[in-house]
Amino acid sequence: MKPTIYITRKIPDEALQILEEECNVKMWDKEDQPVPREVLVKETREVDGLFCLLTEAIDKEIIENASHLKVVSNMAVGYDNIDVETASQKNIMVTNTPGVLTETTADLTFALLMSTARRLIESSNYLRAGKWSTWSPMQLTGQDIHGAKLGIIGLGRIGQALAKRAKGFDMEVYYYNRSRKPKIEEELGLQYASLEELLSDSDFISILTPYTAETHHLIGEKELQLMKSSACLINTSRGGIVNEDALYSALKQKKIWAAGLDVFDEEPVSLNHPLLELSNVVTLPHIGSASIATRKKMAAVAAEDLLLGLKGETPKHLVN
Rank of each mutant, 00 (worst) to 15 (best):
R180V: 13
E185W: 01
N177Q: 10
Y211E: 13
I205E: 03
D170M: 12
E185N: 08
S200L: 08
D201K: 14
R178Y: 08
P210Q: 06
H216S: 12
L195V: 05
E187D: 13
V173I: 09
S200I: 00
S179E: 04
S202K: 11
E187M: 06
S206R: 03
E172P: 00
E185A: 05
Q191P: 03
D201G: 03
D201W: 11
K183S: 06
Y176I: 03
L208Q: 15
L208H: 15
E185V: 04
P182D: 09
T209W: 02
L198A: 10
E186K: 15
D170Y: 09
N177I: 01
Y174F: 14
H217K: 14
E172F: 03
M171H: 08
E187C: 01
F204D: 13
L208I: 10
G189P: 09
L199D: 04
T209P: 01
L199W: 11
K183W: 02
Y176F: 15
V173F: 05
T212P: 06
L195S: 11
L208N: 15
S200T: 14
D201E: 15
Q191V: 10
P210E: 06
G189H: 10
L218C: 06
Y176W: 14
A193Q: 15
Y211R: 08
L190A: 09
A193P: 00
D203K: 05
Y174Q: 02
P210V: 07
Y211D: 01
E172C: 05
S179P: 00
E185L: 04
D170H: 14
L188Q: 10
H217E: 14
S194P: 13
H216P: 01
T212E: 11
I205D: 02
I205R: 08
H217Y: 14
R180K: 15
L190V: 12
E197S: 15
Y176M: 03
Y175A: 08
T215N: 10
R178M: 08
M171D: 04
Y175V: 09
E185F: 00
E196W: 00
I207G: 07
H216N: 15
L198D: 04
N177A: 13
L195T: 06
Y192T: 12
L188Y: 08
L188E: 02
S200K: 15
L195K: 13
L195N: 07
P210S: 11
K181V: 05
L190R: 04
E196M: 03
S194Y: 05
T209Y: 00
I184Y: 01
R180S: 13
D170S: 13
E214V: 03
E187H: 00
S206K: 04
